[in-house]
Design a protein around this nucleic acid. Sequence first.
DNA 1: CCAACAATCGAAAGCGCTTTCGATACCGGA
DNA 2: TCCGGTATCGAAAGCGCTTTCGATTGTTGG
Lengths: 343, 343
Amino acid sequence: MVTIYDIAKKTGYSVTTVSKALNNYADVSQKARKTILDAVEEMGYLPNSHARTLTTKKSWTIGVIFIESLGIGMKHPFFSSVIESFRKNVEIFGYDLLFASRMINNQKKSYLEQFKYRGVDGVVIVSSLFNDKQVKELMESTIPTVVIDLHSSESAVVKSDNFDGSYKAVDYLYSLGHRTMAHIAGHATTFAGQERLNGFLTSTKSLGLDIQDEYIVNGDYFSREGGYEAMKKLLALPHLPTAVYAAGDELAIGAMKAIKDAGYSVPEDFSIIGFDDIDIAQFVNPPLTTIRQNTEALGKEAAELLLRQINSRQKMNDSIVVPVELVIRDSCKALVQTESSPS
Amino acid sequence: MVTIYDIAKKTGYSVTTVSKALNNYADVSQKARKTILDAVEEMGYLPNSHARTLTTKKSWTIGVIFIESLGIGMKHPFFSSVIESFRKNVEIFGYDLLFASRMINNQKKSYLEQFKYRGVDGVVIVSSLFNDKQVKELMESTIPTVVIDLHSSESAVVKSDNFDGSYKAVDYLYSLGHRTMAHIAGHATTFAGQERLNGFLTSTKSLGLDIQDEYIVNGDYFSREGGYEAMKKLLALPHLPTAVYAAGDELAIGAMKAIKDAGYSVPEDFSIIGFDDIDIAQFVNPPLTTIRQNTEALGKEAAELLLRQINSRQKMNDSIVVPVELVIRDSCKALVQTESSPS
DNA sequence: CCAACAATCGAAAGCGCTTTCGATACCGGA
DNA sequence: TCCGGTATCGAAAGCGCTTTCGATTGTTGG
């Protein structure tokens, strides 16, 4: 490995001057700079990030953790999409992403310990669960953090406007004439799930709709299976809803399957609306009407929020809410009016 | 930050002994070990990975690069799935994953340079393109590498049995009575695409089928759009095929859309079979029959191959082929026999 | 009681880099 | 000619850790 000393020896300058030339210091003559840079080129010198980090305390790495209930890690379509956008937005500035295991010297460590060990400059957390011990510890630490899809007063936060998303969904269904709506909720330990449920509750109430408890059913962990089971419960109700708003696309897809399996069809018998607009949404049958989360923007905002903290050397707890958008496809249908009088 | 020196001062032992205690050296007494470990616990000491790496030349990180034609990075369902499995299999041993940007000191660098700079212990490459300059340079370097979905004599390789996959697909269609099959090929610069095409060609030939050139059409970059366009070309043929084998699920899905848009239906008018078994495959309409790649196994084998190189401190160019599997869903249908006599 | 050996410890060098601060040389102006 | 100022350079310390190798102490057998 060729080091700064080799360059020094070859050029006749001191290591100090070589280092300065490499780091664009002003007190290096044009001549020295050129000789040094030429030698660097010729000898194929590359700095050593570890040595550099050791002295500067800056690693140019950002830790990332996925906490999600499904246990599928980076296969998670929504999360991976956000992280990809995040990556693009930090790589421009020279940051690398570190996906941490939690083993140091063969011992299990916490995320915080792992990231301290690695000396990351900041960490981005994509988490649906909202009471994870380790995430909490991390957010309360001195390391700059940004959390996606969560709320916290200890950390910067970027999230979609879940509340408004619910409003949009309910409004849309209402405008199609639906009056008895059900909600398949995300898991209760999930921040986004809670917000969407709240949004559903308040928006229906403000429209004067009376939603019975039985019409709110829990879809476990935003999974398809959860949606399937939840829909089965709804189908067992004496008075069936005409529309169901699922807190996630996977839930919605599971629900559609349950509907079909029960011999009904979408959107003829039930209008379904989801949340996320994951990749599959447009390819299921019928294509799913849903509330789109802007993963591009989420990743970008998260990157900016984190970089700002890193550059200013202080934690912030700003919170950014990214707008969502209704994407109309074919899974919802206007209700042919029965007794309710048209306005 | 609490260092090894703080522990030394507190316990009265030298830094040498502290270091030894932490690294399980034999020449440290039970008593010393305990005092030191207690102090470590009490003071919340954590080693500094950069300092450690600087002296040991081992970083416990593995670089990863995605090269794929779609430009969607870790959103790529197949690749992310493989990497997730890979991650699980290396994290047990304490390795972290580094997704590298290519900026050092504000200058664009190659992957090789970036990874040398970062001092990674090895790198895993997920690449569909098979003549990328930078990947080639990386494989030819001294850094241990493992490539997924590619072939090379310079690097360890893990890939699916593409050839056999084509055989399985063709055999299956043949068994359903199909005799005029088309193939939507992956892009030609793609290794997997080539292999699958070859498999298609030889297997049809060995079954005595005569495949005209027009029945092989290029689906660009394994994308849906590519599949869509490719299928349109096939539909313009004077004598229509009864079955089409697409080199990827996305291609197959695009093709199905083209078929529907043309007023035909799957599998009544055309039997479609894909490759990959990506997540969506089971949710499209009709659910897609396909050749499943075992992403779990691919990731696991890749991890093992790379770790073996790292541990033995020498590059290897072993090649592992992971079996594929036919997954029968509803997109293929037995051909009602017309003129061809049953055997 | 002594030589030989095992157990335990620590001094010091080194990994590759950055940064402070003082030294030197050279300039123009008085 | 002398002086303050500017441009250029380098010695040295320090970042936190590992590892070699020699020193010291205690133990054992003859």
